[in-house]
Design a protein around this nucleic acid. Structure first.
Length: 369
DNA sequence: TCTGGGGTCCTAGGACCC
DNA sequence: TCTGGGGTCCTAGGACCC
């Protein structure tokens, strides 16, 4: 059996995936009792249906109207003009997130934050059985509710992959426990789209070859899928079988930093593009400085009015650590795009090939804990 | 319906080196 | 005059995630 390939210590883990429910909207509702129970949409300014940008998060009331995160804000407005529309207040959410992550961290043997509103906890030592893990998960949910007035959904499973799918299974305020014996029967009826890494494109390509559920994918021939999807093919089959040996990783090292900006109005004003590059470079450099990193490569991102997106990058002769180098290189790369009729919608700057010395990494790790 | 912003990983071709 | 194979780096684009 395929499961027997997995070493026993990896098979016998209790992993949590904790997902804060409609996080940005929930924080706004908590802060402002007047909007509770009403549809709340956090994201770009809808400007009476003429706004540019997308929905960041909406609460469950707003979802009843068909609003979803990532949807153009103009479409959300059409679906529900009477909703409460709020701008993204990142500093506030970051503050709340930090407090909650502190609560979660103290229950975990190993802890990994993913983004602002999710975390994995390895509790295998603290909770030696799934019954004990279930009690612990309830305790965590209660403490988050009592101290921060917010709900979360938790998936409990033998690995990160299944825990993540489980936390999404019942929401909001859900708790889904998948013991090793239940992994197969839990996954097999679910659509392939539930697997992390399967997006809209992969979903439709899989459908074309007759694969719609995770159960069907689990039985597919890895070699056939390799021909179709490259390295991802066999990976999908392994995932569909509920197998994931990856560890809950305490530390994370950034590989790139960048900033991008969508103009209010599509533009062909080179002055404005230069000014924007300067602002974006300065902000990007703040991150570089905080990490005390050198960078080797500068990338310019440019999106035309028709949403066609291009990148140009340049690897420097020697690693740099200055905002001026980002600006100068990005402006140089911009030249490649000038002299067309098309107006520009977005400009972005990114640095990669980051170099941090070992001592630096160690210091950062100790600070983080 | 007309699409934000911050990221990661993969692919494929070409340059270059041995 | 025609032609190896492997490895690494760089570049551009695309899919995906939160």
């Amino acid at each position: 059996l395929i499961e027997n390939i997995i070493p026993v210590e990896k098979r016998e883990r209790r992993i949590f995936h904790v997902d804060l429910d409609a996080f940005f909207a929930a924080v706004e509702e908590r802060e402002n009792p007047a909007i509770r129970g009403k549809p709340v949409v956090v994201g770009a300014d809808p400007k009476e249906g003429k706004g540019r940008g997308v929905v960041s998060t909406c609460n469950y009331e707003a979802r009843k109207f068909g609003i979803r995160s990532g949807m153009p804000i103009s479409r959300a407005w059409k679906l529900c003009p009477q909703a409460i529309y709020l701008p993204v207040n990142m500093p506030l959410y970051e503050k709340v997130s930090e407090k909650i992550m502190k609560i979660l961290r103290k229950f975990a043997d190993k802890f990994e934050q993913v983004g602002i509103d999710e975390a994995f906890l390895d509790v295998s030592k603290t909770a030696r059985t799934f019954d004990s893990a279930a009690r612990l998960a309830k305790k965590i949910k209660e403490e988050v509710k009592r101290k921060e007035k917010l709900t979360c959904s938790i998936g409990v499973a033998p690995n990160k992959l299944v825990a993540k799918i489980a936390s999404d299974f019942r929401k909001p305020d859900g708790l889904t426990i998948i013991t090793p014996e239940k992994v197969r029967s839990f996954l097999s009826p679910l659509p392939v789209r539930k697997l992390p890494g399967v997006g809209p494109k992969t979903e439709s390509r899989l459908r074309q070859i007759g694969i719609e559920t995770i159960g069907q994918l689990a039985k597919a021939d890895p070699e056939d899928l390799a021909r179709e999807f490259g390295v991802w093919g066999p990976r999908f089959v392994v995932m569909a079988n509920g197998i994931d040996e990856s560890e809950v990783e305490e530390r994370y090292v950034a590989k790139s930093f960048g900033r991008q900006h969508t103009f209010e109005k599509d533009t062909d004003d080179v002055e404005l593009m230069h000014k924007t590059i300067e602002v974006l470079s300065n902000e990007t450099f703040e991150d570089v400085k905080r990490y005390a990193a050198f960078f080797k490569t500068v990338t310019l991102i440019l999106r035309y009015e028709n949403f066609e997106t291009h990148t140009r990058s340049k690897t420097l002769e020697s690693p740099a650590m200055s905002a001026e180098v980002i600006k100068k290189t990005a402006k140089e790369l911009l030249k490649d795009f000038l002299g067309t009729e098309k107006k520009v919608r977005l400009i972005g700057v990114r640095v990669s090939g980051l170099l941090m010395d070992h001592r630096q990494k160690k210091l950062l790790e100790s600070v983080k804990k």
